[in-house]
């Protein structure tokens, strides 16, 4: 009989972070240690309920002995590891990653933390020139081929919002290609695989098969992609419409945790309520029942308490 080690107490290893020597559990990532120590580390493609994706490269740190910077989200600590988070190299990379994203993507709906990091790291997306105009069909670009630029405008991913169903929209002008949605739709939660990265390089984008509409795809509308999207590229139709109408009031939002009324699994729901009405549903990523992931009924099935007869 094989043995499963459960909650076994792991060995401690010694790491040095910015000159401080620490004893931390073996198997922790550098990011785990930094968070534990309260060292703020920007992240975009990392989420507590997903395996490290390691694509955005904003959480980079210096590790002694490594020629290049190291992603703190994915790299596990080794005994004797010496980590630096406050070097010029680190700050430069973080600034540039944020700047490159901001110069090519609409980051205005990313979290307040992201907005703050952009200020703190001194991001200046305008220095790449005025943005190139939005394009109707970025999906048709062929891998390995692109239109040679003259440099007068900065290429970007501006494009129209995709609204093709009643539950959620895809606003890929805001997509930073962090792959979180792909992981949530795939092997980190839902295993539906309705979306994948398609295309290559700067033309890579998140797509259903043949860049089709969601109702023609394998999508089962669990909305776990929305749950992990860091930039507002994926959001509920309700939120999209409220924002469009200027009726979006995050400052007045309350969040109440309760239990889903469908089926017997007992998923924790966080009901986001604005002005007396549920606008979004999420789930806590640290709960053992859901790990932050829901199904279509849990995420979108609340409407029955709001479909009130005309007074």
């Amino acid at each position: 009989m094989t043995t499963v080690l459960l909650g076994s107490i792991s060995r401690l290893v010694t790491v040095t972070v910015d000159g401080r020597e620490l004893r931390v559990p073996e198997g922790s990532t550098i990011l785990d240690v930094l968070r534990e120590q309260g060292v703020e580390t920007p992240t975009l493609c990392w989420a507590p309920n997903l395996t490290p994706i390691n694509a955005c490269r904003v959480c980079m740190v210096e590790v002694e002995g490594s020629r290049v910077l190291v992603p703190s989200c994915a790299r596990k600590v080794d005994d004797g590891m010496v980590v630096r988070t406050d070097t010029e190299k680190v700050r430069h990379s973080r600034r540039m990653v944020l700047e490159l994203l901001a110069s090519s993507t609409d980051m205005t709906q990313a979290s307040a933390d992201v907005q703050r990091w952009m200020v703190e790291y001194g991001v200046d997306p305008d220095r790449y020139g005025p943005p190139a105009p939005a394009e109707e069909d970025r999906a048709g670009r062929r891998p390995g081929h692109h239109h040679v630029p003259d440099g007068s405008t900065a290429a970007n991913v501006a494009q129209p919002v995709k609204v093709d169903n009643d539950l959620y929209v895809r606003d890929y002008a805001r997509c930073i290609l962090c792959y979180k949605c792909v992981k949530a739709c795939g092997t980190d939660a839902q295993f539906t695989f309705a979306i994948s990265a398609a295309g290559r390089g700067f033309d890579a984008h998140i797509a259903t098969e043949y860049d089709g509409e969601l109702p023609d795809s394998a999508c089962v509308y669990c909305g776990n992609c929305i749950g992990v999207c860091p930039t507002g590229a994926l959001k509920s139709v309700r939120e999209h419409e409220l924002r469009e109408d200027g009726d979006w009031h995050p400052e007045s939002e309350t969040v109440t945790t309760t239990i889903c009324s469908f089926c017997g699994v007992g998923c924790n729901l966080e009901l986001h309520v604005q002005q007396g009405s549920i606008v979004n549903v999420t789930s806590p990523s640290d709960h053992s029942v859901t790990h932050g992931h829901l199904c279509i009924k849990g995420r979108f099935g609340f409407q029955h308490v709001q479909n009130l007869p005309e007074a």
Partner: peptide
């Protein structure tokens, strides 16, 4: 720019910006 896989930001966007800057340089910026 063509051969970047597109996975990480420094390379995906960096190669685009590098090509644009070179284009500007050769245009006499």
């Amino acid at each position: 720019r063509d051969e970047s896989c597109g996975q990480c930001v420094p390379c995906r966007v960096g190669t685009v910006r590098q090509e644009e800057a070179l284009a500007r340089l050769t245009r006499g910026a």
